[in-house]
C-alpha cells in the first residue's frame, strides 16, 4: 500500500488517492484534499456533510452514496452539486478520508 504525507502526517492511500485507514484522517487532511479536489476552502456547510459521512461510514462500514447523503443528512441534491461540484459523493468521500462509495444510486 502506498503512503503519502498530507498536512504533515503520513497516511496510507490507494491507487486513486483515497485514504485506506479512516482513523488516520484529520480535519487538516480534509482541507488539503478539498483543495486538491477543487472544492477550495471548506465552510460550515461542507463540514456538515463531511461530519455526516464520517459518522455514517463509521456506523455502516462504507462511504455513503449521494442518495444516502441527501436522504439522511438533510442536504439537497442541488446543494450537494454546488458544494462539491462534479461528482459530489466521490469527492466528499475522498475529502472525508473514506473509500469510494459503492452502489448505483
Amino acid at each position: 500500500m502506498a503512503t503519502r504525507v498530507i498536512a504533515g502526517k503520513t497516511v496510507q492511500v490507494n491507487d486513486e488517492g483515497f485514504l485506506t485507514e479512516p482513523g488516520e484522517w484529520t480535519r487538516e487532511i480534509g482541507q488539503v484534499l478539498a483543495q486538491e479536489e477543487g472544492v477550495g476552502e471548506l465552510t460550515d456547510a461542507h463540514w456538515k456533510v463531511i461530519d455526516f459521512c464520517r459518522q455514517d461510514a463509521k456506523d455502516s462500514g462504507k462511504a455513503p452514496t449521494l442518495r444516502r447523503i441527501t436522504g439522511a443528512a438533510g442536504v439537497s441534491t442541488k446543494d450537494m452539486f454546488k458544494l462539491f461540484p462534479k461528482g459530489p459523493a466521490k469527492k466528499v468521500a475522498r475529502i472525508s478520508g473514506l473509500g469510494k462509495p459503492e452502489g448505483c444510486v
Binding site: T70, S76, F81, G103, C104, V105
Partner: peptide, 18 residues
C-alpha cells in the same frame, strides 16, 4: 428493493444534479 427511486423522483434528481 435495490433502493432505486420511482421514475419521477429519479429524473428530478438528475435535473438537480445538472
Amino acid at each position: 428493493e435495490v433502493g432505486a427511486p420511482p421514475v419521477g423522483e429519479y429524473l428530478q434528481m438528475l435535473v438537480d444534479g445538472g
